[in-house]
């Protein structure tokens, strides 16, 4: 564990808390892509079955349980509690175009041809693009509530912080490198660059998040 990874994980945790806070206080999931949230459930369920047979640390297990439980809870809130506030007509990204190719990538690139490793790889690839339905929705509506942009920023910062973590680990842990996670992580962070630009130049200056028409 190093400071980059810890701050990254905490940023991930913060993003979930911000999203829950937004849904509960506005009593609405307006502006949130159900598809992206469903993809995160798929990511965690595909990646964390190792909870059952591999113990890494107390921290690791607790975080995994939190991520699985909170992502399922968010889906429940969107699907049942606040269902009328979700507009499927703007959440139209075709997720099958993400799931299929990611699964094929998982079959090709993995650290062992077995269920656990293939699903692990699949989850890494899927996580890297899971934000696309959300960004697509943002692009369509052209604006976002400020709290929603804080959620997205925390989520983007989480993956961005994993990059210095990998560099740090490479130098401190005898050249250790995880090419699948690193490649997918760089792609994932890259997807946020446009968003980050608007977030840091507008939202953090007190302006509303609006994309140029």
């Amino acid at each position: 564990m190093n400071v980059f990874r810890l701050l990254g994980d905490l940023s991930h945790l913060a993003s979930i808390i911000i999203l829950l806070h937004k849904i509960q206080t506005t009593r609405s999931c307006r502006g949130i892509s159900f598809k992206t949230q469903a993809l995160y459930v798929a990511v965690f369920v595909a990646r964390y079955p190792d909870l059952l047979f591999r113990f890494i640390s107390f921290y690791n297990s607790i975080m995994k349980l939190i991520f699985i439980a909170s992502s399922c809870y968010i889906l429940y809130l969107m699907r049942y509690r606040f269902r009328p506030t979700h507009d499927p007509s703007i959440d139209t990204f075709r997720v099958e175009y993400l799931i299929g190719p990611c699964f094929v990538l998982g079959l090709i690139f993995n650290y062992g041809f077995n269920m656990t490793e293939v699903f692990w790889s699949f989850s890494i690839f899927l996580e890297s693009v899971a934000i696309l339905p959300q960004l697509f929705m943002l692009q369509r509506t052209g604006e976002a509530e400020t709290i929603t942009t804080h959620y997205l920023a925390a989520l983007g910062i989480y993956r961005a912080l994993y990059i210095p973590n990998w560099i740090y680990r490479y130098f401190t842990e005898d050249g250790v490198v995880d090419p699948i996670a690193v490649t997918a992580g760089i792609v994932q962070t890259g997807l946020y660059l446009d968003f980050f630009y608007v977030y840091f130049t507008k939202v953090l200056q007190g302006e509303k998040f609006e994309l140029p028409a």
Partner: peptide
């Protein structure tokens, strides 16, 4: 079998 990479990250 031992995975090449230890999946110790989240």
């Amino acid at each position: 079998d031992n995975p090449v990479v230890q999946h110790d990250e989240l």
